[in-house]
Design a binder for these strands. Structure first.
Lengths: 196, 196, 196, 196
DNA sequence: AATGAATGAGAGTTCATTCAT
DNA sequence: AATGAATGAACTCTCATTCAT
């Protein structure tokens, strides 16, 4: 009796999502260089012109992809384990990110593309700010850990946060190419941080 | 017979270099997405059609850019201080790379672009192999350092090399965006490695 | 049975008029070149598809606009002062037309557009015939004026009517651009006709 | 021996002219509404893309057409008979314009199209200024004629010039539709001006 | 009566590449 | 070696129109 209820959950809003995801995967596979609105439309099974019904402009579509990628990342990055000890929080954070890299390498490919593009398209510049937020979050974890004596007081939180981010950022490249190196680099980092 | 040889040292070879460099900078500024052969030609002061005399195909031009970028990198990466102690060698290696990032950020922007592209264009795949060479070089330095008691024997050379590479690779993004963070991350790494 | 008749006087006929007027103003502002059915529909507050309920085709809409413009013109051109002397009739005719130009310049802009288009769209060709009617009307006034000795017998009614029409037609362009020149030209004409 | 000299007088500059003329005729036949760059290119026998080699943009092509039309008009309007008496000058001016209308009705069709468009495209607004120049020229002829007693002193030069322009402007419409009316209107005007 | 979704035909424009000179 | 001219294929985007609901 509710069998056909599932056939179409959100009759029309689906399309925007479908298109965004399709574009997302095209970018992951071919880069911005290889993004063709017609292909995206075709993958969803609609006419190329119809895509413009949902995204007036190619840039609008791209913006939607970027928003999707960032929100996907943010979901995972969101601070968890609020009551745990700082080292535990940090390890949790790193392992969750690493797991995401394994499970959704495309996400990081796209984010890298976007990062590169952000340098020239000011509209996407707020993506760079995202890093500041990330940095701030790590610093606060580290500072708490220092004040709670988990880490020595001569550990510079800012520099350490920068090192963590830099290393993770670098792993992006490897996620697809040489995943084992990524894992090794991460475990090495965790030992340096004393959270292995 | 060699009197007029000095009049024009590399009459035409110059042009290939000029074009390669021009293309290099266009890619750094606008990415592969924004590379137009006409613009490259114009920057050198020749007609777009003439470019095809030197590079029959756009891909040929790109290949030349990639070769240029890699050779530029290799020059700096080439092992120096053969007689120095391993920690010294490692520090020298890192500082030279870092210096290059400061002085020629474009080089790393282009390398990142290429890296991304290498995933889909098999022709450029050999760039990835380059990383293996780099990794091997670091491993050999580390192994020598361990055997000479500069580093503890439980330091995994492979993982540490991976961490170093990953962190440096990640710095690429920051070279232009937040150079100070890069410096901080590097000094943090050097302290971890005990070579600060 | 007619109680609820007053609730909505012309339920749907209104819409046709609304749309016609909206299209009329779009043409006046942007010409045929800039006429978009969607914009017309939006100005009336309905969906673009709905417009096709009232006007199956864009051409149908245009035809309605033309009909509207002509009927508007005809209302003013309709012979008045049937009992007045011919010069009086002529002056009345001219001044009424001139007043219309001042008050509704859009009407003449649209008519000019239509005139231009009529040359290629035979459907609108009957607009040109309209001029014949106009010409005939002027000739009859002039002939009556000659036979009643208001004008000399050597005044060629056909040529004079043609001159009047031509001059008024030319004023169309000026109505918006340089209204004072139009007034001057008209008073000059009236003096030539001895009806100033 | 010089037979093949005539084959190609201006090897390349021809094309711009060819294209301008082709576009000119398309506009005359179908209006701005019906101007398609591909058709223009085809009429000259070149690929649609090649047109952009000469006119980067459709607007550039249109501008060239407008410039052509205006220069064509100016050539004829240029003051001649500098030593003749004012009435003679005026008659010459009118008859030359009328002749042009007969011989090149397309020119006036295009000019009307442009005039209409000038109202919305400010770039073409200088076309309207052209009328001021024309008006000034007529005023100076009339003023000279008045001071030399060819016309009564109560003839308002400004108003008369406006009437002349207006009437000629109106003839534009008729040039193609009903040429005989144009001729009649003109002769009527000449009699009013006493230059018949 | 009204709509959102969808479409096909085409528009202007871009671009790497070719070719005659 | 160098060029201007030319091209074909492709791209994004527009728009009147249709259709199921």
């Amino acid at each position: 009796m509710d069998a056909h209820d599932e056939e179409r959950p959100q009759p029309k809003h689906d399309r925007r999502e479908e298109l965004t995801l399709a574009a997302f995967h095209v970018i992951a596979r071919k880069g911005f260089e290889g993004l063709r609105v017609r292909e995206v439309a075709a993958q969803v099974g609609i006419n190329g012109a119809t895509l413009h019904h949902y995204f007036p402009t190619k840039e609008d579509l791209i913006r939607s992809v970027v928003a999707h990628a960032i929100s996907r990342l943010r979901t995972v990055m969101a601070g968890r384990l609020p009551d745990a000890a700082p080292p535990e929080q940090l390890r949790d954070h790193l392992s969750r990110l690493f797991q995401l890299m394994q499970e959704e390498p495309d996400l990081f490919v796209v984010l890298t593309e976007v990062n590169l593009r952000a340098r020239r398209t000011p509209v996407l510049a707020y993506l760079t700010e995202q890093n500041s937020v990330w940095h701030g979050m790590l610093v606060s974890i580290l500072e708490r850990g220092i004040s709670e004596k988990f880490w020595p007081s001569d550990l510079d939180p800012g520099a350490t946060a920068a090192a963590i981010i830099t290393l993770l950022e670098g792993m992006t490249f490897w996620a697809a190419t040489a995943p084992d190196w990524g894992a090794k680099a991460l475990s090495r980092l965790e030992r340096w941080l004393g959270i292995a």
